[in-house]
Design a protein around this nucleic acid. Sequence first.
DNA 1: ATGTTATTTCCATTATTCTGGAAATATGGA
DNA 2: TCCATATTTCCAGAATAATGGAAATAACAT
Lengths: 106, 106
Amino acid sequence: MTQIVDALAALAQETRLRAYRLLVEAGPEGLPAGRIGEELELPPATLSFHLAHLARTGLVRSRQEGRFVIYSADFRNMNQLVGYLTENCCGGRACAPSTRRTRVRA
Amino acid sequence: MTQIVDALAALAQETRLRAYRLLVEAGPEGLPAGRIGEELELPPATLSFHLAHLARTGLVRSRQEGRFVIYSADFRNMNQLVGYLTENCCGGRACAPSTRRTRVRA
DNA sequence: ATGTTATTTCCATTATTCTGGAAATATGGA
DNA sequence: TCCATATTTCCAGAATAATGGAAATAACAT
């Protein structure tokens, strides 16, 4: 439960949610921190604070690449989060919307 | 986006998440505030604060019934939230787990 | 009206989170 | 080596959220 609350809190902040979405869009290659700060127009200290927060909860990973630190979305925790919400917070009814996306057959 | 951040923030707090889950379990009839406070062992002011927070975001509704105020989960916003996460934060892959639960633990 | 129970509002205190400048650290290049 | 660039850490101030006692409001019963 602590994990779930932490993941929710990590995303419950506009700057972090925007950063996370950028990284989802960017795909597995991810983006260097500076690129994210540019996109979000954040001073470096603020950016670092939020990226560290996302990384702490495991929603995001980082790897060093030369002078750059590359961040990328880690979907495992997001899967867990969506799974939790679907199973525990939707009262049995279909909570995920019927989008035209990948249908999952169980 | 503000709506999504608000919903996430509402659930990103242990007390509120627990209250919300209780209400999901309780179904459409919901539960009187006092019953929730009893279950969660909260002083009335604290309980009221958190329930009001959930209601403000639309995750929960309340209705007066005699001397009691009955709270119940409103799934519309939860659907929206899960939908948003699935569509915007999962990078195209299936985010909801394919585990089909026949039994929901109480 | 008075009493009892349920819930909320008021308010102050404490705790947590956010913000960003300045300094520190890290890496690569000349 | 020294310099430029990328990112983080340090730190302190500002903003926001959580907590709960006490008083207020609401609803019903006698």
